[in-house]
């Protein structure tokens, strides 16, 4: 128990420490931003510090908390649906050649339609409700999970499968112990991409359909020419996307894929 705890603390420490490198990258962006600000002036591009002040200000406003909550719920529902449906259909396609032949073209068509066209359609179908944002997220992000599920199942190790069958292992055991761990390594990239897409597409759909949320606030701020607020909202969305990825998905992946780390030689662990 104590050993487990120590191992966990060690892992958490390493994970947080690795954030330094990420912070350096962000500071480089901030420096470039400051340079552009000094060139164009505050009206076109407020400085990072001004923007941070504005972020701090809106964080205290009740309307922002409500808008952020709306956007979060919509992107979460969109994320869950896209990942759920995409992974499931992709996995089925991976198992069944016939299903793959049937579903591949459908996904290609979905991919071919530009997201902006989906927003227009969603607006017509769902009107000015959150449904249009959710639908846009689902359609925009579903193909990635589909591809991940398909590849993951299709590239499962047949030799391991034969081994499991030689011991009389049933379908369910083989799926859980052989296919699923392999599948997860294909799904994680799909999930991180989907998480990022979900935030961005939700905001975009909200802005275009004027259905509240951060996108709605962005539309209002733009109409009022409140540039610092526009910047603050953008920074907030980016922060949410980064938070989802680095506070939620990456730690989860690290925990699930510890066996991968075991194979790395010393010194290259991260």
């Amino acid at each position: 128990m104590v050993r487990r705890l120590m191992a966990f603390i060690g892992w958490a420490g390493r994970y947080v420490w690795s954030a330094w490198a990420g912070a350096c990258g962000l500071l480089c962006i901030a420096a470039a931003w400051q340079g552009a600000h000094e060139f164009y002036g505050s009206f076109v591009l407020p400085s990072p510090v001004e923007t941070l002040h504005e972020v701090a200000a809106i964080l205290r406003e009740p309307w922002f908390v409500r808008a952020a909550g709306e956007t979060a719920v919509r992107s979460l529902i969109g994320f869950a649906l896209a990942v759920g449906i995409g992974t499931l259909t992709g996995a089925i396609a991976g198992y069944s050649f016939a299903a793959m032949r049937l579903m591949r073209p459908i996904v290609t068509v979905i991919l071919g339609v530009p997201p902006i066209a989906w927003i227009v359609l969603a607006l017509i179908w769902f009107g000015s409700s959150g449904g249009s944002a959710v639908m846009t997220v689902v359609v925009a992000a579903l193909p990635i999970s589909f591809a991940g599920g398909l590849e993951g199942v299709a590239t499962r190790d047949r030799a391991l499968d034969a081994m499991a069958r030689s011991f009389g292992g049933g379908m369910w055991l083989r799926f859980r112990t052989l296919t699923l761990p392999h599948l997860i390594s294909y799904l994680f990239p799909a999930w991180t991409t989907t998480a990022g897409t979900a935030w961005k597409v939700t905001v975009m759909a909200e802005l275009l359909s004027n259905t509240g949320g951060i996108g709605g606030e962005l539309a209002t701020a733009r109409a009022l020419f409140d540039i610092p607020r526009v910047m603050a909202l953008i920074v907030a969305v980016v922060a949410f996307a980064l938070l989802t990825e680095y506070a939620l998905l990456h730690p989860l992946r690290d925990r699930l894929e510890r066996w991968r780390e075991a194979g790395l030689p010393w010194g290259v662990k991260r």
Binding site: A159, L160, A162, M163, A164, F167, G168, G169, G170, L173, T177, L178, P181, E257, W259, G263
Partner: peptide, 20 residues
């Protein structure tokens, strides 16, 4: 060897027992 890379040696040895 056909071991499961995500299982420890212990769990790999136990795999046939688990299937049984």
């Amino acid at each position: 060897p056909r071991l499961l890379p995500w299982f420890t040696a212990h769990d790999n040895i136990a795999y046939g027992l688990r299937a049984a």
